[in-house]
Amino acid sequence: MNRLAALMLRRIPWLVAALIVAVTVATVRAFRQPDYWLNVTEQYFAAGALALALTPIVLTGGIDLSVGSVTVFAAVVIGALSEQAHWPVGLAVAGGIAAGLLAGLFNSSLVVLGIMPLVATLATRELFRGLASTLVGEATRYRFPRTLHDFWEQPLAGVPLPLAVYGIAFLFVLTYLVVHHSWIGRMVYAIGDNEQAARFAGLPVRRVKLGLYAWCGLVGGLCGAALVVRHGAAKAEAEQSLDLIAIACVVLGGVRITGGAGSVPRTLLGILTIAVLLAGLTIVAPAWRDSLTGALLIAVAVANEAGNRWAQRRAAEAG
């Protein structure tokens, strides 16, 4: 395999993102307006935030399939607290975020107990959504005052950017710093590469996992709050495919599903790719949206894997 091809294989997420963005901007008129980009950011804020929170978890070789359910659960809790318990909106939002954190802690306790993250979060996925349905009860949704939505639309510090942009930027910077420049991040990579060796080196594997899943729950709570604020309503049946979209972002970004390889900037690329792709396809060819996304996901995963293997083989030969 010549060097150019090899180089390209290592840079798959960049190439794919560039390609998608270029094609979309060229073919979809709406993308030529900067306003529309902000719109897309708002729409895919939850998917992006969750993908960022999922990245360290997947890096350790785990997974969390319940992120969408936690989001909806938190949203419904906010609704319940504000409408039934008559809490002030701000406090209700805090309560919702706390509910997300609790859900994340529940996930982490199952994982630390020794249950495979796949199975544990498959179960909690149903559990949390069911709890959300139960809370909502006979009514199918809560309604929130318009003021909440206005708050969301308010420009921050005079700059006319929606809160979603700040939110994603903040989460990205935070996740990037923690994963790539803190000791927690080093531990995450070590656990993902060889959990046994990490244990022998004295790393607190259990506590790290506890923290990661709890953090994911907290971010789910934040997304729930964002959902409520943006739509002015909380519905238990909302966001059915949020989990899978978030995971697709992570996979497209080249994070290995078995752990130990990947990076936060790449996840951001994955988010960008998915958001632009889905938004573009929704306008241009809604019937092909799912098919193309699925095909792209598989193609990128295969290419990433091939690139990883090639790189490993070259490194082994050289070493």
Binding site: T258, S291, T293, G294, L297, I298, A301, E305
Partner: peptide
């Protein structure tokens, strides 16, 4: 075939085919 030939974990492959099949059904 995708899992074996592409050497990708079935979870990722079936995540992709989930979307693919759903899209084909819609079409």
């Amino acid at each position: 075939l995708l899992s074996l030939l592409g050497r990708v974990h079935p979870i990722v492959v079936t995540l992709g085919t989930l979307s693919l099949y759903r899209g084909l059904t819609l079409w």
